[in-house]
Every structure is written in structure tokens, then in C-alpha cells.
């Protein structure tokens, strides 16, 4: 909590993210109980990037909300990296405060002793240098998502959680944003967990892909990628995707 101004410890010193949910039930609008998650358990190694993938409505977002502490009613246990250090979230909607500028939005997330910190590099890397004094209402969705990424990385989190951060963007913008995320994340490595239903995206970004079944979610399998991100070119992707799609039918 208070170690934000210190450099991020090397990956080996951190704990892994361990998630074990043995049941999560919602009360639906009609009062009936809906079982969202049956049983899922996975871990994310310190400083690595993992992706949760599964059909729409299978409980991926619910899993993220449990990890973020926004939903505390579930059976199971949770172990967060670095003994409960700060968690950053990039939500599906950018969730910026419309009445604060981009820079104010980012700075408000910083802890008190950090508010004056130099953020020039971060804004520059994300291509937001010119946008710092704009209000979110003046930004396109792609730029607003970048501002949300800036806020997430600004707090130097020990865990970064992303909920479909590229959804409803055109392919060109989405792909540029994916590259940006890879760049920022590589320069500021932190344990990251992303939810998506896009296998290409998962394959491009992740060290580990966790496949979930339809609701109520169960584990379908875990796939680790050891190929360095730099070597994941189009040819590699074309070879990997069909193999994965064959093993986990219906994910592509």
C-alpha cells in the first residue's frame, strides 16, 4: 500500500495471483438464483500476463469483480500479489470522471504522497501528451481507453485487471491499442489478468490463457505460451490459432 514510490520489486519477490472460486450465485431480476460460477481455479505467475477466455456471459466479468473486491459474496479464496498491494482496473467502459481532465483523472488515482509525480513518460508512451487537459467528453473511445490505461499504470499496481479493454473499437484502433498495451506493460511489468472473448487478442498478449466453459463457469483448460511476444508474427499466429481452436472448439 505504502510502497508505491519504491521501485517495483523484481518479479521473483512477488506472490502469484491465486484464484479459487468454488461457487458464485446471483439473484436474478425475477428472484431466481442463477449460478454464475461452478468451480474455477487458476494462478497467474508474478509479472506475467494471463487471459480469461470463454463465451459471453460465462462469468468472466464476475470473476474480475470478485478479484477487484467489488463482489464479496462467493465461496472460495483469493490470494492477491504482493500481500494486497494496489490493484488497477481497466473496465469495459473507460469510467473516467467526465468533469475532470484526462490528467486530473489519472492523478486522482494516485495516492496522496504521489500526486505530484512526473507522468510525462506515461502520457507520451500512450500518445496522450496533447490530450492531458482535455475532458473525456472530447475524446474518442480509443483515446478514452488509453486514458484509462494511463490511470491504471500510473498507480504502479501489483495487479492489473482488464475487462475486454478493446471491445467495440474498430480493428485498426484495437490493434494499435493492443500494441500500446504490450509496450507499456513490457516497460512496467506487473501481474496482469485480462478478460476477452477474442482468441487472437489472447494469443498476441498472454503468457497464459485460461479457457472457461459456458455458465456456470468451469475450467476448460490452461494453455501456456512460451514464445516471446516479439516472435509472435503472423505465421506463428496462423499456426497456433487453429491448434487451439481445435482443442477448445468454439473459441475462435
Amino acid at each position: 500500500m505504502s510502497n508505491l514510490s519504491k521501485p517495483i520489486p523484481p518479479a521473483g519477490d512477488q506472490d502469484a495471483l491465486e484464484v479459487e472460486i468454488r461457487g458464485k450465485t446471483f439473484r436474478g431480476a425475477d428472484g431466481d438464483a442463477v449460478r454464475a460460477i461452478d468451480e474455477i481455479a487458476f494462478s497467474v505467475a508474478p509479472g506475467s500476463f494471463a487471459t480469461l477466455i470463454g463465451p459471453s456471459g460465462c462469468g468472466k466479468t464476475t470473476t474480475l469483480r470478485i478479484i477487484l473486491g467489488l463482489d464479496r459474496e462467493f465461496d472460495g479464496r483469493l490470494k492477491l500479489p504482493a500481500g494486497g498491494g494496489r490493484i488497477a482496473a481497466v473496465f469495459q467502459e473507460p469510467r473516467l470522471l467526465p468533469w475532470r481532465t484526462v490528467e486530473e483523472n489519472v492523478r486522482l488515482a494516485l495516492s496522496d504522497e504521489d500526486t505530484g509525480r512526473d507522468l510525462d513518460d506515461l502520457f507520451a508512451v500512450l500518445g496522450l501528451a496533447e490530450m492531458r487537459s482535455r475532458y473525456p467528453g472530447e475524446l474518442s473511445l480509443g483515446l478514452a481507453r488509453r486514458a484509462a490505461l494511463a490511470r491504471a499504470f500510473a498507480i504502479r499496481p501489483s495487479l492489473l485487471v482488464l475487462d475486454e479493454p478493446f471491445v467495440s473499437l474498430d480493428e485498426q484502433t484495437a490493434s494499435r491499442l493492443r500494441t500500446l498495451l504490450t509496450d507499456v506493460w513490457s516497460a512496467r511489468p506487473t501481474t496482469a489478468l485480462m478478460v476477452t472473448h477474442n482468441l487472437r487478442e489472447a494469443v498476441q498478449l498472454s503468457d497464459r490463457i485460461i479457457f472457461l466453459t459456458e455458465r456456470p463457469a468451469r475450467m476448460r483448460g490452461v494453455y501456456d505460451i512460451t514464445t516471446p511476444r516479439a516472435d509472435r508474427d503472423a505465421r506463428w499466429r496462423e499456426a497456433t490459432l487453429p491448434a487451439l481452436a481445435k482443442r477448445y472448439s468454439g473459441v475462435l
Binding site: G69, L70, F91, R95, L97, L108, A109
Partner: peptide
């Protein structure tokens, strides 16, 4: 609610 959750995650 979304902004409230954001504020809680970022420990406002």
C-alpha cells in the same frame, strides 16, 4: 455505480 466502483478500486 460504475464511477463509484472505479473510485473504490482506485482507493479514493
Amino acid at each position: 455505480r460504475d464511477l463509484e466502483e472505479m473510485a473504490s478500486v482506485y482507493r479514493f
